[in-house]
Design a protein around this nucleic acid. Structure first.
Lengths: 350, 350
DNA sequence: TTGAAAGCGCTAACAA
DNA sequence: TTGTTAGCGCTTTCAA
């Protein structure tokens, strides 16, 4: 194998195969009519040389980039990998490729990441949440590409939106809890300014309780990883502080699972004396001694629906539908999924 | 806000500010000397218009791309998000950006992803594992950029490598187990052809046992997600089949945790009658009723070290060190980290 | 400190 | 079916 001094170009393949650059380009992209004989010669030459096309040049020339920017707050959160899987699963059918950016829940970081990704002129953006800085919103609005905001539908999207209403999710859970006769309810969750969706669930939750004339009896907020251990600690602390609670609502399954394990160890009668519920329906729950009640946030479906929107609009644009920037090109799709309660073993008293 | 018909270019900023394109470019990249007055006019115009530079054109012109391709098998695996965090943490100090590709443990998918990413001419590649198809290896070898293979050091890298010896990890665990007097040992793990690192740990493990004249008494392999539930099922099945086992070694913490929960529910004396160990030292373990013995795979450190190698070499190249393709440019770094056993509560008999 | 010209590697559009 | 020409938006290089 010869050591190369520089990356190969189309011209190298052209010379090696005795076919014009243009025709080589056609062969490699499967565009236009090329005779079988020529095609084979080109392919053979490209393979022999180990040619890898330069998408940068291609993208500049064609002003077409098969990238979709996906911007999420975190990878550690369990939630997002599954959304990602939905997105990539759906995009595999197309020529689009997801490119991931992570913001760590920091708005200014989101701004940077967005700027960075938009400067690659992707074919679309899928971005978590609806809350963002004005500059971020302005960038999205003027990018001239499909923008899908995901996870949450409580707010004003820039363009399309796919998600669930977290407010409604909280409200539904409150109703289910009240229906089961629980009255002294404690809440544990992440510090709110960071996590808007958790905040909205909490707001919906208190609203739901209020309808039954109930207030949250105790609450605690934490920051840092959503671990089992955190759930244990907080649960212990809360029950020592407010021993007469009969229900614990957690803003995510991970801390909920920690709380559940702690309660079971203490020999607390679950769900007889104490009910528990989390949020997200993570796979983990299936393996616990009792299944924590929770709510399915439709993560995979959200990813899939978002990807479909981008793919269909990007496809239409590529096939020469509306000109770039031609006003809201049919856009503004609004997909509101309905989360379902998974009662598990910790909500319904038998 | 005026609706735009096309993406803004440098020329637009140039016209709006009355400064040449070249000088605008200098301002926006902080290169070369520009008077304070000019700089301010340009910046103001760019901001007012909402200009976002086109990196595609920039990259083509400068043949410099601030992207690092990161290729991993899965996002669901717990392991990789933390490696990713290590990588992005380290790259935040530089101008490099990680771009993620996921292979789902499929070699042919790896080949595609690699081809796709290399066609964007990234400044480096960080890729999990050492086992890959010949075409993949060829692409990496001839890309003319730093390549860091991570996680595993048992094998022949293309260029640099950062990781642990999984063979040695398995062997160490075997020794620790034997030292504690366990003799009837069962193994549970993923189906091997998929997961080379799990395979190597298993090989090292059997080798370690063999040194003590012991063989694995029972084994079971599964495919599909590494869930708590899987660990429960398998553990139950194995202990019904081979009731006299006194130790269970799991190829990952998740199934190990499931097994542990099951054993505790059954009232099995852990670690007196039955020891257990997993692999990875995931955060989850801290919240279990007993902490599963495990091994720290140095995930974050691996990500950091890999990113440092890419950053330092990419930096050197950009500053005009060796010409591209100039033979192994100082490369071939080899970072072998040493995993440590975390004995938890399930390995050491008191 | 600023500007003008050339060209990065590819593809669109048109010609043969 | 194949080839030619121009140019995508920026940066490099060189001149002023």
């Amino acid at each position: 194998m010869t050591e190369l001094r520089r990356p190969l170009t189309l011209r190298d393949v052209s010379e090696a195969s005795g076919v014009s650059e243009m025709t080589v380009s056609r062969v490699l992209r499967n565009r236009g009519d090329v005779s079988q004989a020529t095609r084979e010669r080109v392919l053979a030459a490209a393979k022999r040389l180990g040619y890898v096309p330069n998408k940068i040049a291609g993208a500049l020339a064609s002003s077409r980039v098969n990238l979709v920017a996906v911007i999420i707050p975190s990878l550690s959160n369990m939630v997002f990998p599954e959304v990602m899987n939905g997105i990539s699963g759906e995009l595999e059918e197309t020529s689009l490729q997801p490119v991931l950016g992570v913001t760590h829940y920091r708005p200014e970081r989101e701004e940077q990441v967005l700027y960075e990704m938009l400067s690659w002129r992707p074919s679309g953006v899928i971005i978590a949440g609806l809350e963002r800085t004005d500059p971020s919103r302005a960038m999205l609005a003027s990018a001239g590409i499909p923008v899908v905001e995901i996870m949450d539908t409580d707010g004003q999207p820039v363009d399309a939106v796919v998600g669930i209403s977290h407010r409604r999710a909280g409200l539904m859970m409150a109703q289910a809890i009240v229906e089961q006769g629980y009255r002294r309810i404690g809440f544990m969750g992440t510090k709110m300014p960071l996590d808007h969706r958790a905040r909205k669930r909490f707001e919906g939750f208190t609203e739901g309780l209020a309808k039954a004339g109930i207030e949250v009896a105790d609450r605690e907020f934490y920051s840092g990883g959503s671990g089992l251990a955190k759930g244990r600690e907080m649960t212990k602390a809360m029950l020592e502080r407010t021993p007469d609670l009969d229900f614990l609502y957690y803003s995510n399954d991970m801390i909920g699972a920690g709380g559940l394990l702690w309660c079971l160890e203490q020999g607390i009668d679950v769900p007889g004396k104490m009910g528990l519920a989390g949020f997200n329906n993570i796979e983990l729950l299936d393996g616990l001694p009792k299944r924590l009640a929770t709510m399915d946030a439709c993560r995979r479906q959200i990813g899939e629906a978002a990807a479909r929107i981008v793919a269909s609009r990007a496809g239409a644009a590529a096939q020469g539908g509306a000109a770039a920037g031609d006003a809201p090109e049919g856009g503004g799709e609004r997909v509101v999924l309905t989360p379902t309660i998974n009662v598990g073993d910790t909500l319904v008293r038998v």
